[in-house]
Amino acid sequence: MSEMQLTKTRLIEGVWEGVLQTNRPGRYQPKIEVTHLEKQVPGHSLQAVGEAGEFVVKVPVPVELLSDGVQTFLIRDTDSGDVLSSFAILAGEALADDIRAEVQLLREELDMLKRAFRRHCLETL
């Protein structure tokens, strides 16, 4: 288990932000890496704030990595290899099709439940 915990705070203007807390003693400077499809994503920053062992993590999302579908980014502790957090960005036509399919399935399930409930009401009278 990692001695660090990364908590997302927000995604704003194309930059994912979070707070990294570590319980390692002294002036430990953590090392993280960000990957997308197992390739390094450059440009992230790690800045110490307030309390000892607390850091602000900023990960700018490169425009060239955005495309239709789901793009998943992993943030790892470089030393241990543990995944500290991840985030996904969904975009494009592929997403619209997925949502329409899910809504259609929900409608069909609701219709099935309504029929079963009506049948149950008729049988219990």
Rank of each mutant, 00 (worst) to 15 (best):
V57F: 12
G18R: 04
G69D: 11
E93W: 09
K114F: 09
V49S: 06
R107I: 09
G43E: 13
P62C: 03
A94C: 04
L122F: 06
G53D: 06
R76I: 03
V59P: 01
G43A: 14
V41T: 11
E123R: 01
F73G: 00
E38Y: 09
I99E: 14
F55L: 08
Q40E: 11
Q47T: 12
L66G: 10
D68T: 07
K39H: 09
V49E: 02
P62M: 08
K8R: 12
V34W: 00
P60A: 03
L65A: 00
R115T: 10
R115E: 14
D82R: 08
K58N: 14
K58R: 15
L74Y: 04
Q5Y: 06
Q5W: 03
S85Y: 01
H44W: 15
A88F: 07
E33S: 12
S67L: 03
F117V: 10
C121F: 05
K8T: 13
S67E: 10
H120K: 07
G26E: 12
P30M: 01
L90V: 15
E13F: 15
A94H: 05
V61Y: 00
D82Q: 09
A91P: 07
G18I: 00
G26A: 08
L122D: 10
D111L: 14
L74P: 00
E33H: 05
G81D: 01
F117P: 02
C121I: 09
D111P: 01
I99G: 10
D77P: 06
T35F: 02
L125W: 04
D77M: 05
P25G: 00
R119P: 01
L110T: 12
A52G: 09
E102K: 11
D77V: 00
